[in-house]
């Protein structure tokens, strides 16, 4: 049993993956909480598909350099995020079909760009490959986490106000758009930095699932953020152990764990869960 739990982390690459995933588990879920509260969950779909063409272009021009692929991913992610925001304003909130169009297009473009290249494994890019977590990839994850937390702390109050009451924000401080943009940059950085270990499709899972689950445990923002971070760290550790022992890619293993925690929260959480609804007085 102990072997099952500890053996994975006797290996260098697993330790690197663990360190990177824990760093992201601290940085990404708070962003996820805001995405959920702002009803922007769909944005995470757009991003997970949207970064793909950028990563592909980075790989085409600079080979398998994590930095080049990361940079391409960030540029592409920001582009689709801004495009999505623009579409949302244009369509007055009825943007979901437009956003679906956008991310399908991005996914198709990314797959088409990558599929023709030899030496790049599409599965690794989409679902992650812990073996590929080299030092640059680890520094990327740790670096993004290091930047995200202080910046988030800095924009916390304006971001809360903008999420709580955009009309009020617009009427008073005005610069709601600026905080929103900084927030989007952080989201894109977190999604992209996780792609080596978790894959583009799965790294969003570490951001969103713990955040959605946390809603069932706390009715304060700080409480939800703390819960989400805790759940994400749990998912990272448990997911990597499963990934190693069952020989499944790390991304899906971590997201499956996070998904199981979400399902548990939905059923048994202390707030608005199925259990609570069935037994209001319990």
């Amino acid at each position: 049993m102990l072997d099952f739990l500890l053996e994975p982390f006797t290996l260098g690459f697993m330790r690197r993956a663990l360190a990177g995933c824990l760093a992201l588990s601290v940085a990404a879920p708070p962003l996820g909480v805001f995405l959920v509260l702002r009803r922007m969950s769909l944005m995470s779909d757009v991003l997970q598909h949207g970064v793909l063409p950028g990563i592909a272009v980075g790989a085409i021009f600079a080979g398998l350099s994590v930095w080049a692929m990361g940079l391409g991913g960030v540029v592409a992610g920001l582009t689709v995020a801004l495009l999505a925001g623009w579409l949302a304003r244009r369509t007055g909130g009825r943007e979901d079909s437009q956003l679906a169009g956008l991310y399908l297009l991005a996914l198709a473009a990314g797959v088409a760009l990558i599929a023709g290249r030899r030496g790049i494994d599409l599965t690794h890019i989409l679902f992650g490959n812990v073996l590929a977590v080299d030092d640059p990839a680890l520094f990327g994850m740790a670096g993004v986490a290091t930047v995200t937390l202080p910046v988030l702390a800095l924009i916390w109050r304006p971001l809360v106000l903008e999420s709580l009451d955009p009309g009020f924000m617009a009427a008073t401080a005005g610069r709601g758009g600026l905080w929103h943009l900084i927030f989007l940059v952080l989201v894109v950085l977190c999604v992209v930095s996780g792609f080596v270990a978790l894959g583009t499709l799965m790294s969003v899972g570490l951001m969103m699932l713990p955040a959605v689950a946390a809603q069932h445990w706390s009715n304060s923002l700080a409480g939800q953020v703390r819960t989400a971070v805790l759940l994400a760290c749990l998912s990272s550790v448990a997911g990597l152990i499963l990934s190693y022992n069952l020989d499944i890619p790390a991304g899906p293993a971590i997201v499956l764990t996070a998904g199981a925690l979400w399902a548990f929260s939905l059923i048994a959480g202390s707030r608005a869960s199925l259990w609570r609804q069935a037994m209001p007085d319990a």
Binding site: L37, V160, S163, L164, D165, P166, G167, F168, A171, Q215, S218, N219, S220, L221, G223, Q224
Partner: peptide, 13 residues
């Protein structure tokens, strides 16, 4: 404002 945009489901005191 009339019909405030304040999100009343936001977890805040």
């Amino acid at each position: 404002a009339q019909g405030s945009q304040l999100d009343r489901s936001f977890p805040i005191a």
